[in-house]
Nucleic acid binder design. Structure first.
Lengths: 214, 214
DNA sequence: TCGTTTCCTGACCGTATGGTCAGACAGAAG
DNA sequence: CTTCTGTCTGACCATACGGTCAGGAAACGA
């Protein structure tokens, strides 16, 4: 039985070792930070989940905060690119519809990342405040302009673009951040494929009709 | 200068002392739990904010978890009663409109409570799971019925009532939980009275139009 | 093959935290 | 005044946590 566990292709080169260990640690960290929050998470817990000795974590990430920072930044990147589909769209139905799809998919596939982000912002964004003030602000004003263009072109009703964006973020991320509550109200069962599709459709219908694009 | 600080009317009776100290501690705890999370909060921090020695907290609340539990339950009660206005409404415009108003007002006045609740649910609701399964579930099915009644009466378009409720919760609570992000995007300034009113109006318009009630 | 660099880890340390407790203090009751 | 009960708190404790470090193991380069 020289058969290795699925992913682990037994790396030998130093580069591979470093990359794989960093990835493993980051995945474990994302989960633990999501479940326990920054304060509640312990390096020992992350180490156990990653299957590495605690001292090894500190070899790759100097401090708990460094590790946390990296986790948050990773999510932020995914977040930003979710709106790429919005930019080349001809109008709100296509653009915002695709954005909702993308964000709902992230909520489904990376709920832990969403929770870490939510936790970070809720606690006053101590780690990524600079990103909020630069990258996110630019991103937001850019998309607000895009929406204003659609309004000017008569493709949707006049609405406040910022509040529309907040609504999009809130509604889509809710399915990740409050997934446990939704699951409980769903009889203790996670949403099935069909139910996820229904959720997407509901959100898209209500929002697109809400902005007068349907 | 025998003039006491505003609220503190120098209580003497034991009942008054107990009530006032419990309230003071709970308020401080809500703030600290909201800012730091359960794991990041310390009894010492809460004690300092409450202006009491740490040992005194343990006299009123045996453990940190007991104190936390009480904070979460208080919020939950406020949450539930926010929908009272919905029940006697003649239709969705009045009922859901009033519910949005009420929840937006809570987000504005008690953002810390909202954050504590969000944090609790995000971490798997370790403390109030039983409430989710009983009280909240009953509450939800009741309001879903109410919405279904409005749909049957032709007062709004047919939408999935659960997903509508999720959207209401997500959108309104977002203004508390992600208040820091909103403030940053607002140029670092908290929303003014006028801006809060605009937020309320935007949310109400988009949602009520989204369900075909306008 | 041999030195060099990187990777790895058990054992250890200082500190901060939740919680305890003995005893001081102060209303209430008689 | 005396007793009793509830309130208060400084000092203390055990534990758990983030982080360190010396030294071993393994890959690399020549």
């Amino acid at each position: 039985m020289t058969h290795n566990a699925s992913q682990t292709a037994r790396p030998t080169s130093r580069l591979e070792i470093r990359q794989q260990n960093e990835t493993t640690i980051l995945q474990a960290a994302e989960k633990v930070f999501a479940e326990a929050g920054f304060g509640g998470a312990t390096m020992q817990l992350i180490a156990d989940l990653a299957g590495l000795p605690k001292a090894n974590l500190h070899y790759y990430f100097a401090t708990k905060e460094d590790l946390y920072r990296q986790v948050v930044r990773n999510i932020f990147e995914i977040w930003l690119h979710a709106a790429d589909s919005m930019d080349n769209a001809s109008g709100p139905v296509e653009g915002i519809g695709a954005y909702i799809d993308a964000k709902m998919e992230i909520s489904r596939r990376r709920p832990d990342g969403s929770k870490v982000w939510a936790s970070e912002v809720m606690h006053g964004a101590p780690v990524i405040q600079d990103y909020l003030e630069t990258t996110l602000r630019d991103w937001t004003t850019g998309r607000a302009r895009l929406i204003e263009g659609w309004i000017a072109a008569g493709k949707m009703q006049p609405v406040n673009p910022e509040h529309l964006l907040y609504m999009l973020w809130a509604t889509t991320q809710h399915y990740a951040d409050f997934g446990h509550q939704i699951e409980t109200l769903n009889g203790g069962k996670p949403l099935t494929d069909v139910e996820w599709q229904a959720a997407k459709d509901s959100v898209k219908t209500m929002i697109l009709r809400g902005i007068g694009a349907l």
